[in-house]
Nucleic acid binder design. Structure first.
Lengths: 150, 150
DNA sequence: AAATTATGGTTTCATTTGAAACCAGTTGCA
DNA sequence: TGCAACTGGTTTCAAATGAAACCATAATTT
């Protein structure tokens, strides 16, 4: 009987990352989806707009930061703008670009959801030692650049 | 101007995990999708069947290991069986259950793709010190149980 | 400056996905 | 035994997604 050397999934990094990441995103998503009628992509757009507040990001830049494709961003924005959670203006010097900002309603969502997300992160980090927490950030810093963006 | 304490995404664990994991899965997927006419879900099913070779897994068990929902698994199996990459029999004592095994063709795919996946993993791990590699496995072991499965 | 090429963003269309309904078979229990 | 509840798996239908075509504006070339 030949040896096929199957991947030991329990120790295989991409597999573990994928499962862990999916669970986390889903757990957080469950906390806001129904409550705020907010999809995961919409939340990500809000999080990015909040993070880069004052920059008046364009849709393209949002796509860059979220690493979602521009179609997904466009659609999320359509809904967010319709719900008046995001204000969309046109860039002064370039009429193609949009200039995006959270509205008061958008911030309200953000301020409600961000703590939920943070709580999840805390719950995870709480299982690690201070040492491990530091190590983890360092490790992620090193791993990120290895894989090219989509 | 009030303080909204936005998430610092560059350091926010769920965000980093999600982006990293997506990139990795996508990078690996790009290496086999076209070449073998194999979707990501199909590959995951194959990887699990290979890993638990000889167990004659049921679709349900495959779903458990891949953490994909049973509809997705069912569909992946339909295709895999049609392509004769997986053999599906019916469980002896329980006619609802299926008993799944990779065929020779299935193993051939596995043996071609697994090294690609492993190469990607190696490339990532290569950026880490032995110390960090060990730490990472420990960290993942601790984080996994914190988040409930979907 | 006209013509070409590139860019931000949206729309279209075909495919993928997920929730719920469903079917067949099994288990629990009156 | 017979009936209700459950489980493994598939189907259906509506919604989410992605690739490619598209539109408008900008930048580049001639």
């Amino acid at each position: 009987m030949t040896d096929h050397a199957p991947l030991e999934l329990e120790h295989f990094l991409p597999y573990r990352l994928s499962i862990l990441s999916n669970r986390v995103s889903l757990a957080i998503a469950r906390a806001y989806q129904d409550r705020f009628d907010l999809s995961m992509t919409e939340w990500r757009v809000i999080a990015v707009l909040a993070r880069y507040d004052g920059h008046g990001l364009s849709a393209r830049e949002v796509a860059g930061h979220t690493e979602m494709d521009k179609v997904a961003v466009s659609r999320a924005l359509t809904r967010l703008v319709a719900a008046k959670r995001v204000a969309r203006r046109t860039h002064d010097g370039d009429k193609r670009r949009s200039v995006l900002r959270l509205t008061a309603a958008g911030w309200k969502i953000h301020d409600a959801v961000a703590p939920l997300a943070r709580a999840h992160e805390r719950k995870m980090l709480a299982t690690l030692s201070a040492e491990e927490r530091r190590a983890l950030q360092g490790i992620l810093d090193k791993l990120a650049p290895v894989v090219e963006r989509p």
